[in-house]
Nucleic acid binder design. Structure first.
Lengths: 344, 344
DNA sequence: TTGTATGCGTTATCAG
DNA sequence: CTGATAACGCATACAA
């Protein structure tokens, strides 16, 4: 047992050179599709490679090229549905372009994020992608994105759904401000005025949503009641019992920055005999599976994560090709998906 | 713009050696915590390292050690909730042990799986983890796990939720046979006899579930009606309309191999005025978020993915430490979570 | 305890 | 078009 000592000396470029009667330089040229090599010798070398099943040693390649064609992906939690689908799109795009992905889950605290980003940089990745606006700093502490600018001195940094200024930093975000403004406005136009805003985050994205909510109320001449803006956990039962214990403030609609919280509100309504959407309209965010699981099905904002990821990867690939005129920021429009928890 | 040419010559072991007035060998010893180095010189070197912010070049380390302490994770789709939570646990465990993870999403076809596993091997990872029983072969084609045995000649292969024989292959699976047997038996004992079995897969795991279902029926003296075993897609609306068009076969309960299909069945019941659980009992699998999203909430099998991942990583770390007596297979018990779609 | 010298497997720069 | 050979940055066996 356990005798898989893997002593089989890996075949290397010298072996191929010998087998095909050429120098290692020529083998290297063939492997790298260098045009200045005659068809004849190329054929010989290719044959030897095929026979032996040779593949170049990536460590040696990395040492020479200072790159292993690897991208670091940092995500607070891959178990989150929004993040995991983002990673799915990213991995797919990058893989097609010949890059591998190192995944790290950082958690949400500032310290964790900085530590993980540093560890990732040590791996000499070609670029880093930060998934989720949690990396884009929070409400009051605008300074705490400095660690991103520091990282950007080493490799290009790409942010999914956050906007951070800085050289070598590239951001793609869905237009959460506009989407949030539009949803709030639609609720108002459908006769609602007491709109509960539920969020679990103080990230860049959450702030954009909050701004859109405020602006829509302002534009409609409704003064913002700060008690209507509630920070909670993105967990169905937590939100449900939260609302059950919030009898002091009246609301005729709920707008949540994640579907989980919206479902919590829906559960609250169902178990308290509140008619949805007539007595209570509910809108979620992210257009996740939960939307079509609930009954009635949940209206939600589709934040076009696939497009955001595609844009990000396209620009990453451009940058790594050496392309110079790549825009630093881009914004993707969201889309409201109307289902049965709203009547507009 | 674009002037981030990164020309800053990376500081290397020679620089540190010079700065601290020692040889590179000594620096290397300090970096690797080699005990035979005096406290005094160690302090000097540490100081230089701290001053300069030096970190060893991982490519050079890899070239010498033939390892970059990296584990390859192969998963058919990271957007799947079950898989993404598995990857979350795996990444966490491995990270704590000082390993990084390369993630690849392979898709479900045999060809894709083989290609991706090969590409992963070329990266000279230290081990490979296959997440999901789709890698463990399907019903009829027992031979098609050979590509796993081939890979295992290069590096240890770990399978999450599948059992494949072979040297250097280590498997951890939840006991889906037993769980399925227990669920089916419970349904029977609560007075059901026409149990629809819904599945979207022919993987090892799906087969185990099917066997448990059959065995329970047999033991109860109920002959298996093959029409009750239905292969479909794990999509809520697909299953819902499937059942709406299946008026020819009667059923008083549904057991699905994934929560998504169970929710589809629930939706069918709700929209057709069928009382759940009285007229129709429903049990799902994976105990996902969907269970507490639906109304009534879904009974489901918790397959203890966290424990499965922990076991897998523990053994992986053991193996890579050179430990010899590591069991090849282990099985983790599932747990039925009773909610409102069943009355037992 | 410390230093010297060599190997690891490529890529790339020169000559030829 | 092809071949020597010098980096690349580190670990380590061997000397001292």
């Amino acid at each position: 047992m356990g005798e898989i000592k893997n002593d089989n000396k890996m075949i290397n470029i010298y072996d191929i050179a010998e087998m095909s009667g050429v120098s290692i330089a020529t083998v290297s040229r063939v492997v790298n599709n260098n045009p200045k090599v005659s068809e004849k010798t190329k054929a010989k070398v290719m044959e030897a490679i095929k026979q032996s099943g040779y593949t170049p040693n990536v460590f040696a390649q990395g040492l020479g090229l200072k790159s292993m064609r690897t991208i670091g992906i940092l995500v607070p939690s891959i178990a989150d549905m929004y993040m995991s689908s983002a990673v799915a799109y990213i991995e797919d795009n990058l893989h097609d372009a010949g890059y591998d992905c190192i995944l790290r889950c950082s958690g949400y605290t500032a310290e964790q994020k900085e530590t993980h980003i540093q560890l990732l940089l040590n791996k000499k990745i070609d670029a880093i992608i930060l998934v989720g606006s949690t990396y884009a700093g929070s409400e009051d502490e605008s300074h705490n994105t400095d660690y991103i600018r520091t990282a950007a001195k080493d490799v290009p940094v790409f942010i999914i759904n956050g906007l951070v200024d800085g050289e070598n930093i590239y951001c793609t975000a869905s237009n959460d401000y506009q989407a949030s403004y539009d949803v709030t406005t639609a609720l108002i136009e459908s006769g609602r005025s007491k709109i509960l805003f539920l969020t679990d985050s103080r990230s860049y994205s959450a702030n954009q949503k909050k701004k859109g909510y405020r602006q829509a109320l302002n534009n409609a001449g409704i003064s913002v009641d700060e008690r209507m803006i509630i920070h909670t956990e993105n967990k169905i039962p937590v939100v449900k019992s939260l609302l059950e214990n919030t009898k002091d403030i009246e609301f005729d609609s709920v707008f949540a920055t994640d579907d989980g919280m919206a479902i919590g509100a829906l559960k609250y309504a169902l178990s308290n005999g509140i008619d949805v959407p007539n007595q209570l309209s509910i809108v979620g965010y992210n257009n996740s599976n939960l939307c079509i699981c609930s009954e009635p099905e949940l209206s939600s904002v589709d934040n076009k994560i696939e497009k955001v990821c595609k844009d990000t990867c396209d620009r990453l690939i451009d940058i790594l090709k050496g392309n110079d005129n790549v825009p630093n920021q881009s914004v993707v429009a969201c889309k409201l998906v109307k289902r049965a928890t709203t009547d507009f």
